[in-house]
Design a protein around this nucleic acid. Structure first.
Length: 498
DNA sequence: TATGTCTGCCC
DNA sequence: ATTCTGC
DNA sequence: GCAGAATGGGCAGACATA
């Protein structure tokens, strides 16, 4: 598939409001993609080059792309910046500047048609090369490389490619619609969406799923189960305003302290336990950061599926002691004062979000991991198991001590069963008194709905829902043009004096 | 070496 | 993380 | 209610530059 064909789809998608229509258009695009390119097509549709947990980023955004555009079209940073502030979208800036380039638009178009048409895979490879530039002089190489790429593209392709590093493709759809489209491609309806979503939840790599799906000509069924080493999309919590609503919605439920730290998904992988290698697993490169596999490897993933193992050496160390084949745990890590053992505010915990000098900061700000869920154990997925049973398994895991885990570093989240709004409020008040962020209220019978935000979990925080603390009198001092949807109004935000 | 700019990822 | 919007 | 876009505060990392 040529890049021009691809971006003509993007153009028509961006003009489509109805997600059902988008799904049909996307299905056609996917079916026209060969199985060698469909994964790359998926990543580019999502404005990326790889899934998040691969850790490959452009390290280029608005400022860099302004330089790219200036260089490509013989303009300068000030001019491009000015137009960008007016338009609020670098794609539109490119569309506007291109005819003014040293070569007329017609020429650029002709060049794109000359010789071999540019394939989407070629463009993808060039983008990847740019993203992978690092070290001294890399900023210049990225900017120069991207400007050369822009010049080789037809106008429409340039418009969309420039939007990718700034994370503003703004096509009006994202991963879920892409899963719908895969189903539509195979079936002409959304009947396989649930199946595909299940696969995505335990292996958040749409490119891989699309490729496997396509190779089976859409007839096969994608079977994936939770695999230690591959992150599971974390369950998220809904919000409700009052304790009454919570009890009404969840019934008798479980309350846990809401800790203001990092969401941490711990994977324990034993090499002795041979993971049945799925089609996906074999295609995947060795796990990034995957040093030699000792007999017990621990990998850690963030809420957004980043591999953050390097941030938590003490947690990794503890879990390596655990006498277990493999496991996936969900929980929260929070810093504490080594003298008083008290929890630290998020502002201090976040200083652990670093990759250098971890052992130094770990002395100053040690972390404690509160496990609150068990998603898989010794190859068996618990996603479909009710919460109270998962929790029981988790407790058993902590009790059966191969070697004892240090409770200062790794522990299990406390729970209280609540069946009335009064009891719930009492827990909430107590949590505030003890300096927590509030409480998490969880439905005892609920399965772990990976990737979803629903009322299986509800957070009870101060300040209720969407209520402003107070009103404020202010004086308008100026305004900004705004980006994206706000760019059309001329004003995106006010500058205000109190 | 010290500081500044830009970026990505935590919430 | 929160808030808003379109469907 | 779901899916998506846009927004904010604040930290460290990567590189450029003084």
């Amino acid at each position: 598939m040529t890049i021009q064909t691809f971006t003509s789809y993007l153009e028509s998608l961006s003009k489509t409001a109805s997600r059902n229509e988008m799904t049909v258009v996307l299905a056609k695009l996917l079916s026209k993609s060969s199985s060698d390119e469909v994964d790359k097509v998926c990543y580019l549709l999502l404005g990326r080059l790889t899934p998040k947990f691969e850790g490959i980023e452009f390290q280029m955004a608005t400022k860099s792309m302004i330089k790219v555009i200036a260089l490509a079209y013989g303009s300068n940073v000030d001019e491009v910046t000015k137009i960008f502030k007016q338009k609020g979208d670098l794609g539109v800036v490119v569309a506007q500047l291109q005819p003014k380039a040293d070569r007329p638009l017609a020429d650029v178009g002709k060049r794109a048609h000359q010789g071999e048409p540019l394939q989407i895979t070629t463009v993808y490879d060039k983008l990847l090369k740019i993203a992978l530039e690092e070290g001294s002089g890399s900023v210049e190489r990225k900017i120069f490389g991207f400007s050369e790429l822009l010049k080789s593209l037809d106008p429409l392709s340039a418009k969309y490619m420039v939007r990718i590093p700034v994370g503003a493709l703004r096509l009006g759809f994202s991963d879920m619609t892409l899963l719908d489209a895969l189903s539509w491609m195979a079936m002409g309806d959304k009947s396989l969406r649930k199946l595909l979503e299940n696969a995505y939840n335990v292996s958040a790599d749409i490119g891989l799923i699309a490729k496997a799906f396509k190779e089976k000509a859409g007839k096969g069924i994608v079977h994936l189960k939770a695999t230690p080493g591959i992150p599971i999309r974390p369950q998220q919590a809904e919000r409700l305003g009052t304790a009454e609503e919570m009890i009404e919605k969840l019934g008798t439920s479980v309350a846990e302290w809401k800790l203001d730290g990092f969401r941490v998904q711990v994977h324990i992988i034993s090499s002795k336990l041979k993971i049945k290698s799925s089609k996906f697993k074999t295609q995947r490169k060795q796990m990034q950061l995957g040093e030699k596999r000792s007999d017990k490897e621990v990998q850690i993933f963030s809420r957004s599926l980043e591999n953050t193992t390097h941030m938590f050496p003490e947690i990794v160390g503890e879990f390596r002691k655990l006498d277990v084949g493999s496991a996936i745990l969900d929980g929260e890590a929070i810093g504490y004062d080594p003298k008083t053992s008290k929890h630290l505010p998020f502002q201090e915990t976040i200083q652990r979000k670093r990759k250098h000098g971890i052992s130094d900061i770990a002395q100053k700000i040690p972390l404690r991991y509160y496990a609150f869920d068990l998603l898989s154990l010794n190859g068996e997925s618990f996603l479909e198991v009710p919460f109270n049973e998962r929790r029981k398994k988790l407790a058993e895991l902590f009790e059966k001590k191969g070697k004892k885990l240090d409770p200062k570093t790794v522990t299990i989240a406390e729970q209280v069963i609540v069946s009335t709004p009064e009891a719930l409020r009492k827990q909430f008040d107590e949590s505030v008194k003890q300096g927590f962020e509030g409480i998490m209220v969880k439905k005892r019978e609920a399965v772990y709905t990976a990737g979803a935000r629903n009322f299986n979990w509800v957070k009870f925080k101060h300040m209720g829902v969407g209520k402003l603390a107070d009103t404020l009198d202010c004086l308008v001092m100026g305004y900004y043009a705004g980006q994206g949807k706000r760019s059309g109004f001329g004003i995106g935000a006010f500058l205000v004096k109190v």
